[in-house]
Design a protein around this nucleic acid. Structure first.
Lengths: 342, 342
DNA sequence: TTCGGCATCCAAAGCGGTTTGAGTGCGATT
DNA sequence: AATCGCACTCAAACCGCTTTGGATGCCGAA
């Protein structure tokens, strides 16, 4: 069942039927209702491919996922972000298309997406410092929103980010207030923009209290259980070990916890731990009382909001870049306590 | 730059240019090379929307993700599966479109995907017993491959699955061989097909050795850290506690480990644990030596294979249903040992 | 009576490709 | 010399929708 057939059954022209269904004013209300009814009765759904060609819009948003020779973006955080963004797209009649490509084909993929007209815009994931994708997308004229920011970008661009610096600054201050002075930072990879900001927040807080950051207490690696464990073990083996940890993710945090248990330290009593909690749907930080004290910000909500921002931008003829900075909550769980008396 | 313009610049008809680029035989080799060169020079990429309309194929595969009022499918396993499938699609020039929809709209989404022509086929995730989606897709004539199986389906259908029954049977036998007789099963939700099969394997192995399965040693819940922890705690509190655990996932396993540490049991010495390891890229089971002894099967590879199967099916005019059963490896890590002497 | 305006509706021209059904020109066959 | 087949190429139809630029009829105003 297509437009033409539906029109002929109704004894109308395709023009009128199309307009009736799309809510144009120049069609008689009685006619419109007749058309609507017939469409429903015959289970008519306009062909998306034809609409896309006729309107010149893809009604789709792209997410490019480089599969890593180096580091994976396919991580749990990504999954939840996608889920959030996908909700927004569905609600607005957009498709979400994921391109999983070898990372040396990332640029070609973006160019292809634009020139072949597969999508109306893209979300940029996991920005790094001086991320080349921003200039590229600007260049080829593909609307985009960055999830995060890219320090060093020359041009203004749209982004949605969590205030990572502030979150880690507050967390550090909180630990300092509890008397901790040796705080281990188990950070993500520091070519990632968010990790840089988090370290900045941590360092700023220390410096503000006159504490010199100790390089031995700052680790930077992938946010896996293994890496969290390794980093914590290394710091715990120091002559002057930390009395608290600030950890980049829930999963790293589980590695840290394992390390603590191995050396016989009880989290929350002997040693404090604060993690960053992305509020993942399948990786909840406890039920009523959080297991970990945490800086929390829902990455799923970020996905929803970033997608909304992008759809807004796509809809506008000449959109100005938008920015939105979300604040993380500091939630108190069972993993912190005062620094032990020396 | 579009076909017509390219053609006129070359002094050729669109027909010939189209054929030259698509490798049809009825075009002079010299002409073809001239066309190819010009296409590259002018950076010509055929418009996907036009191709789709003209050919009647969507060149896209759908994945429908119901967002749960009840249980989330947006889980880490899903992310890796998607990544694997996405690789296959990219290699073959297909788009992957994800539809994230409220679960009461799942059926409508499948129907829409078909009638609006958005996709050429779909992958069905997380099948349950008597899963209604199979009949539905059969009905509306949308090609599909199920990741997993759906016990109780009336019609034959295509699927790709891991031999979950066998995997858990082998793991159980392995523990039995080590002298364990009280083995706790920390399973996934048992309306999920894979979870049912795993329990069957576990029960079969016990029964074959003349051991009556104890309901108190069989838990079924979501595969989260929290749930794993809770289940393990409950079993450890039994008068006759288990000497080994068989656990449905890496993440549940971490919860189990936490429970063990809480009660002062050392994994691998005091108590044995075997998990199922989906070989997730960001959740590796150790580096050289696995942390957990495990039944392992890469879900990412499953994604690749399922996608290949689906593309094959889509390409064929009248495809017969296909099946593929993958075997999980049993890999020995540091989390198992002989049962303690009574 | 005439004409402008309004409410409706439609024919036809896109959108940018693919594909069908015909040409052409040329060497080989009869 | 006429015919045939082959190798190329092209015009035009088509995919299924949107959208432009009229038509048409009817009513009230001049």
């Amino acid at each position: 069942m297509n437009l033409k057939e539906l029109a002929s059954r109704l004894g109308l022209s395709p023009t009128t039927v199309s307009r009736a269904l799309n809510g144009y004013p120049e069609v008689n209300e009685a006619t419109r209702e007749r058309v609507m009814a017939a469409a429903k009765r015959h289970n008519y759904h306009p062909n998306t491919r034809a609409i896309r060609l006729a309107t010149g819009r893809a009604m789709a948003v792209g997410h490019v996922i480089p599969i890593a020779t180096r580091h994976e973006i396919v991580n749990p955080v990504f999954a939840d972000f996608i889920a959030g963004a996908g909700e927004t797209y569905s609600r607005n009649g957009y498709d979400m298309v994921l391109s999983v490509v070898p990372d040396d084909q990332e640029e070609a993929t973006y160019r292809g997406l634009k020139s072949k007209g597969n999508v109306d815009g893209v979300i940029v994931h996991a920005p790094r410092m001086n991320d080349p994708r921003i200039a590229l997308l600007h260049d080829i004229g593909l609307p985009f929103v960055v999830h995060g920011r890219a320090t060093g970008a020359a041009l203004p661009y749209s982004w949605l980010d969590v205030n990572n610096r502030r979150a880690f600054q507050r967390a550090t201050e909180f630990l300092l207030d509890l008397g901790h002075t040796r705080i281990g930072l188990v950070n993500g990879l520091e070519f990632m923009d968010f990790a840089i900001r988090r370290r900045t927040g941590y360092v700023d807080a220390l410096v503000a209290r006159g504490i010199a950051p100790d390089p031995a207490l700052m680790a930077s690696d992938e946010m896996t259980e293994i890496c969290g464990h390794r980093a914590a073990r290394a710091m715990l083996a120091l002559p002057q070990r930390p009395t608290a940890f600030l950890v980049a993710s829930m999963i790293s945090g589980m590695g840290v916890r394992r390390a603590l248990e191995e050396v016989g330290l009880q989290m929350g009593r002997d040693i404090s731990v604060i993690i960053h909690d992305d509020d993942l749907s399948y990786m909840k930080n406890g039920e009523d009382v959080p297991i970990f004290t945490a800086t929390r910000s829902s990455v799923r909500e970020a996905g929803r909001l970033a997608a909304e921002m992008l759809l807004d931008i796509i809809a506008l003829p000449n959109p100005a870049p938008r920015q939105r900075l979300l604040e993380a909550e500091l939630i108190i769980g069972q993993s912190n306590g005062p620094a032990p008396k020396v």
